[in-house]
Amino acid sequence: MAVVETRDLTKVFKEGQLGAVNHVNLETREGEFLVFLGPSGSGKTTLLRMIAGLETPTSGEILIGGQVVNDLSPRERRIAMVFQSYALYPHLSVYKNIAFPLKAQNVKKELHKEKVEWAASLLGIGALLDRKPRELSGGERQRVALARAIVREPAVFLLDEPLSNLDAKLRASAREELERFHRRVGTTTIYVTHDQVEAMAMGDRVMVLNKGVVRQLGTPTDVYDNPADTFVATFLGSPPMNLAELGDVIVGFRPEHFRPAPTISDAAVPFRFKVENIEYLGSEWIVSGTLVGEKLEGKKVFSRLSSAQNLQLGCMYDFAVPQSYLKFFDRSSEKRVAPRVVSWH
């Protein structure tokens, strides 16, 4: 029995408009860390809010613990949610913030102190209990929000871009902390983000959304190595997958597989590649340029290399992509299709 399940879940805000969420079918696995990934406006928050009970679905069903909860209030769904803004109660101390769900759910008063202290120590904020939210840093606020979520021992955690308000440096450490936290408590977690790095790093599974439609649901390796369509292929990876139209198919290959021909020993497709820009990123180089040849003349592509010291701007080189790394997509549906033989030149 899945902790959270949705069946054909749809949300249309204004009649006649496209849905914000369209026919989403989803089943979480016990204890997993599931990530909703998609660009801004793809319906991630709306989907999460419907699961939380803050938004009424237009159609479809939501099940929590096998029971349809469409008509239940958020209170009755036994979920915990961390908002993007953290939504701490500004007039209450950290202690009272964390204790609020216990009070609201009529947990016996004698247990409050013990539970609050347990949650606070789990997140390392035991020393902050007397402070008001405005006296906390961004990272501390985020931990208070998490402590407030965990204290009631919910069936499922919903997190809406909890790291997006932190600066880049803090974000990396907060991410790692969240992962550790999840491993420790083992609660099924749904995590919303528009950041593919976060999604890949944290997710047991990643659900890629675009315009309210599920494009793919799979493990990080699945969605990266076997993208279901061209949207997923280009949304994940930086720089994105190179795509080239050839007849009625689109052929795709990742920048890291587009390398100088001499370094490839397997069967490979050769290209002439004119280097137009080179970026040094410390551990790797991003080389961009255009293909030279009849059908793909002028096609802009990226290459990701561990070393590009012997490449020069404006020069032409022999590059190649191993045959096994080519992805094929149908040109009209943009969905992935089986590998096939295409004529390149």
């Binding site: 803050l54 209030s73 979920i79 949610m81 109660y89 007039h91 769900p101 609201a104 009631r152």
Partner: peptide, 29 residues
């Protein structure tokens, strides 16, 4: 008052009156 504060209270299990009396009205002091 940001909308997600009463929403957080609802998810935390507070009913209408608790949200008003313990969260919203104190915030409007």
């Amino acid at each position: 008052i940001p909308k997600d504060i009463p929403e957080a209270a609802a998810v935390d299990g507070a009913g209408f009156w608790r949200t008003q009396l313990q969260i919203v009205i104190p915030m409007m002091r």
